[in-house]
Design a protein around this nucleic acid. Sequence first.
RNA 1: UGGGGCGUGGUGCAAGGGUAGCACACCAGCCUUUGGAGCUGUGGAUCUUGGUUCGAAUCCAGGCGCCCCAGCCA
Length: 564
Amino acid sequence: MMEETTKPTDFIREAVAEDLRTGRFNYVRTRLPPEPNGYLHIGHVKAWMIDYLVAKENNGELILRFDDTNPTKEETEFVDAIIEDTRWLGIEWKEITYASDYFDLLYEWAQKLVWMRKAYVDDQSPEEVSANRGTFTEPGKNSPWRDRSVEENLDLLERMKNGEFSDGSRVLRAKIDMAHPNLNMRDPVMYRILHEPPHHRTGDKWKIYPLYDWAHGQNDSMEGITHSLCSLEYRDHRPLYDWFHEQLGVFKSRQIEFARLNLNYTVMSKRKLRRLVEEGYVSGWDDPRMPTLRAMRRRGYTAEAIIDFVQRMGVSTVATSNAGVIADIAFLESRVREDLNKHSLRRMAVTKPLKLVIDNYPDDLVEEMDAVNNPEDPSAGARKVPFSKELYIEQDDFRETPPPKYYRLYPGNEVRLRYAYFVKCTHVVKNDVGEVVEVHATYDPSTRGGDAQDGRKVKSTIHWLSASHAKEAEFRMYDRLFTKEDPEEGEEGSLACLNPDSLHILHGYVEPSLAQAKPGNRFQFERLGYFATDQDASENKPVFNLTVSLKDTWAKIERSNKSK
RNA sequence: UGGGGCGUGGUGCAAGGGUAGCACACCAGCCUUUGGAGCUGUGGAUCUUGGUUCGAAUCCAGGCGCCCCAGCCA
């Protein structure tokens, strides 16, 4: 698949090539910089692939570095989950590192900046720091502590580190320019005091923790990262990123920003996703409706399809919303269908069963019908499916009074039962309230296998299951989580447009062999869609998640029928 | 409001002074033992105004619109 796509070219790859050409760098090393405070989602995959491929295409190296500078949010559980998901994508890295690996060195670099009179300990309260930062239009005010002696700063910094001061009582700040038009340059905070909670890796060793701006660029430099690729909202941080390298006289990594990836009909922010989980709107972070990688995996999306999707999305600096680009979920689904169409085994399943009785078929006869496993892949072979007098068909495949252009079963109409016989509907049996409970038909024995010897045609082929052989199964039918393309839009908030029908549970039947399907197995249930066996499956009743439906032309016709 | 970034069909990306193209979506048709897949075709876009030029999506200037920034989050 990767060979098929033309070699991607974009402004980042051009910049990297340029740097190699001009000698700014003579090798390429990138980094994946997750903060271990949540699960990876589809938006991360874009960044992951850019970092991975830019390194790979240039015979460079990729480092997986956890940005763990804030112990109040980070947990080992997320480190493990991120590693698992990254591996699932097929991304290979040279080594795993942590920002916390560099806390000692980073502290030395901070002392150096103090010596250079480029950093100082500020005793202002958080409120004072904020108030004195100024606004977009007004300059900030210099801290009264801005011109302390090197000795006093060094002493105070050391005591901050040793835990002598309470949280929030002091910070270390870079001394730049409180009147700078870029707020990030107004004496940014480098270290804050944090006694609790213990850090997931360094425990209670540290009482001060570096902030992003101080840690990230220096870690990049320490690791010899050539290209530090990040999303658009860090554009304003680049002058600061460069300033630290310049002052310290260290290896200068190059930061390049790109638009991050969002999807319509969903939310991507950790805060909003957490709310869905915590308030029970979904079953968990791996609920198949979530945009997280583990959810997509559970739903049946393949890593190949997801990667193909982000690759085809391209890379740009366009910011349509929230510092990124909004992709159409339909495009993701088209990539999933393309991949699954080629690779998944066909099976028959009936999600909304309706009994079909073939009146002229022998009572006790069972025939084994030949069914192909994948018309796109002859090497997938064929299988036998039992056929008998009483069958289940899909409720949607029968109408007592057919609407216009309805080709499926209705009284007097003949259709093909896939791989079996032509059948003609004769009559129906109804219950007390007038619902059709049984459809009756006659079959033409000369059409065995589905071919009419006399050359007559039917306009429809429907799927079926032998009632006595079929195995019970649960089907979880998913739809988009939100009804609006942009759930954030409007003041009611995203919860106001949650789709009440994002999950439909159906109880039906599958072919006998599917009773043994293993979690993660993927199938195409003919004429319905792609499904993946869920982990919830029990021994006698498997559960299948709808990955994505097949394109449904009839549904489209029906919709336009109704709108007329 | 100061700073930074960005404007090409509905969406996402191409075209780097020379015929505005691709994918998805949409519409029509062909084909079909999945109303699937496949195939063919149609429609539709350069934010705006001015300038430079034989020629501008591309270069210049103004305007308009959208996104990001005032955490001791990342």
